[in-house]
């Protein structure tokens, strides 16, 4: 990014925050419902000092990582198999298509009855949230591999598992990465919905912090936690997905 674009972004956020602060200070909007940026900041500093925010973030990220990992480990191979075997596509593929349209928060009542107010319920909701979209994306990624790649590989003597691992998998990477990104977004949303909706006794995540902010009418906490949730999503995108996408674009020659 060049200096000019950085300056424009910086200016935008300064004006936004400054305007917001001023509106609250001059009591044009009610700080009880809409606290100023400085008040939110002081909550964040306090929550960092008493570690409540760090614990909550840790618990949330741990649940997210575990659920997402299971979603990837099951979804990617199953999706690739669906693309390969029509019988699997006509059964599991259809099921995945159905489940994918179901907003994952709809799994929460079921999860509570099956697993109780436990980590298991949280994990289940996250897995259900991301598994199906990962599976379908992997399937589409494989289906869009040019058939010529397989023919070329076959005439070079590649077949079976070798071809699946060294031709199909890398060729499908752009589609698979898209699916991983979408799966991450779904996992993140499912978990937040579940945490806000259900109190789990084994650990308070960011969603709970948000929920209790509302119960206590601590609007600075509500805003602060929302900011942290936003920041987590942004950081993962910047640190994990964007570099991976840039790498693939460079390799495939699809960068602008």
């Amino acid at each position: 990014m060049n200096m000019r674009r950085i300056t424009v972004s910086l200016l935008f956020f300064l004006v936004l925050l400054g305007g917001w602060e001023a509106l609250v200070r001059f009591e044009i909007i009610d700080e009880f419902l809409f606290p100023a940026p400085t008040q939110i900041l002081s909550y964040l500093i306090g929550a960092l000092k008493d570690r409540s925010l760090i614990f909550a973030s840790g618990i949330t990220l741990k649940r997210l990582m575990m659920g997402y990992a299971v979603g990837l480990i099951c979804g990617l191979p199953l999706g690739m198999l669906c693309a390969r075997f029509k019988a699997l596509d006509d059964t599991l593929g259809l099921l995945a298509l159905g489940f994918q349209t179901l907003p994952s928060v709809c799994w929460v009542p079921l999860a509570l009855l099956w697993f109780g107010q436990s980590e298991g319920a949280m994990l289940f909701v996250v897995i259900m949230g991301c598994l199906w979209s990962v599976l379908l994306a992997a399937k589409h990624g494989v289906e869009h591999v040019p058939p010529l790649f397989h023919r070329v590989a076959s005439t070079m003597g590649s077949s079976g598992l070798h071809q699946a691992l060294f031709v199909t998998l890398p060729a499908a990477l752009p589609g698979i990465l898209g699916g991983m990104k979408q799966g991450w977004a779904f996992a993140w949303r499912s978990l937040m919905a579940a945490e806000i909706y259900v109190t789990i006794l084994t650990g308070f995540g960011l969603g709970h912090l948000l929920h209790y902010g509302r119960e206590l009418h601590a609007m600075d906490q509500v805003f602060g936690v929302m900011l942290v949730i936003m920041l987590c999503g942004y950081l993962v995108d910047r640190v994990v997905f964007s570099p991976a996408e840039r790498y693939l674009h460079r390799r495939w020659g699809t960068a602008a």
């Binding site: 010529l148 023919r151 070329v152 005439t155 003597g157 031709v167 060729a171 390799r251």
Partner: peptide, 16 residues
Amino acid sequence: SRDRLMMFQDAALFPW
């Protein structure tokens, strides 16, 4: 078989 290697109109090189 790799004994009968085929080239196509498209080079079909692997971009990865």
